[in-house]
């Protein structure tokens, strides 16, 4: 069943256009991740689907409802984890869970959520004194307390502790098995690769790639060999030794466009050995998601970017 349907979405802030004609769908039981560098339009897109802003153009349906116009009808069926904040600074996790428990018709048991997110030791600490990880875990618990059909997790692993990382994984696995649709944004490629059924890569407000993590990684460059070594190897010499094209993608990161077969790997290693060149690492076969991302956007993912990528002014509400 299609749970989220986005059609030709445009979002503009005055002169600046943040999202340019984005369309995609997500089904129940699916984990869809939106990846993208700074200012790619991720948060604008997600917040429109959550009902926070009205699209400048295009349409959005969540569970068949327009999230901006019918937010009050939709709210009981969605769970939202904001990038940061969202909880009364003086409130303890126990009080916040109690309050949110009161909002929903058939809420999840509080004890279950405390165990799931391991909030036991912090239950009576006011929100403003919680660690970053505890804040994230509480926010996650509040996002699922109403047994939602659609869950939005905006950078759930930004600044999180290892416990929180595990909690996020466990919660997502749980939600998936219950047929919940999860829309995730993240800067962390590892998490995206591990958690997602499907990934959308956004850049400059447009979708530049879409598919399962495997699809994206195989489709990007096909077979190749990547390795890291000191900067400035003689590319022409290496290319003739390998009988293949070689480029230095980033300083010290080399890409050899050749079938990732043992013979070719042997040629590469013997070439390096004969010149006594140290190898950082070597990967043969499909590209990593990071390679895909870099190839498509020309940017590397930066974890700290999550705190600066949303437009701070000219919100509609």
């Amino acid at each position: 069943m299609t749970t989220i349907e986005v059609n030709d979405l445009y979002i503009a802030y005055g002169e600046k256009i943040a999202v340019l004609g984005v369309s995609f769908q997500a089904r129940s039981g699916e984990v869809l991740t939106i990846l993208g560098p700074n200012g790619a339009g991720k948060t604008s897109t997600v917040e429109s689907i959550e009902g926070y802003r009205k699209p400048s153009k295009g349409s959005i349906k969540v569970l068949g409802l327009d999230p901006y116009a019918d937010l009050s009808k939709l709210a009981p069926f969605i769970g939202v984890m904001l990038q940061n904040g969202g909880i009364y600074p003086r409130m303890t996790p126990l009080q916040a869970l109690g309050l949110f428990h009161g909002y929903y018709k058939d809420p999840q048991e509080i004890d279950y959520l405390i165990k799931l997110t391991n909030l036991g030791p912090a239950l009576k600490t006011p929100y403003r004194r919680l660690s970053g990880g505890e804040k994230q875990r509480l926010s996650l618990a509040l996002a699922i307390i109403g047994r939602p059909k659609v869950v939005f997790l905006d950078e759930p692993t930004a600044g999180i502790d290892p416990e929180g990382r595990l909690a996020v994984r466990e919660v997502i696995r749980d939600l998936k098995s219950q047929g919940v649709c999860v829309l995730l944004t993240t800067h962390e490629l590892d998490e995206a690769e591990r958690l997602s059924d499907r990934i959308i890569i956004l850049d400059h407000g447009k979708i530049v790639a879409e598919g399962s993590p495997e699809d994206l990684m195989t489709a990007a460059h096909g077979d190749n060999i990547r390795f890291s070594a000191p900067v400035g190897l003689d590319l022409a010499e290496l290319a003739s030794a390998m009988d293949a094209k070689v480029v230095e993608e980033r300083a010290g990161e080399y890409l050899v466009s050749t079938a990732a077969v043992p013979e070719q790997i042997a040629r590469l290693t013997s070439f390096l050995a004969s010149r006594n060149i140290a190898i950082g690492d070597i990967r043969a076969g499909r590209s990593s998601l990071e390679d895909v991302f870099f190839a498509l956007t020309g940017k590397e993912m930066e974890p700290e970017a999550s705190f600066t990528d949303k437009p701070r002014s000219r919100r509609r509400r």
């Binding site: 959550e50 009902g51 926070y52 937010l71 009050s72 709210a75 009981p76 969605i78 939202v80 904001l82 940061n84 904040g85 969202g86 909880i87 009364y88 600074p89 949110f100 909002y103 929903y104 018709k105 509040l142 109403g146 509400r317």
Partner: peptide
């Protein structure tokens, strides 16, 4: 004002409270 700056009002908008 504190609720607004901590994103509480924003978060509550997507709960059944309204």
């Amino acid at each position: 004002g504190v609720e607004r700056s901590y994103g509480v009002l924003k978060r509550l908008a997507t709960t059944p409270l309204g």
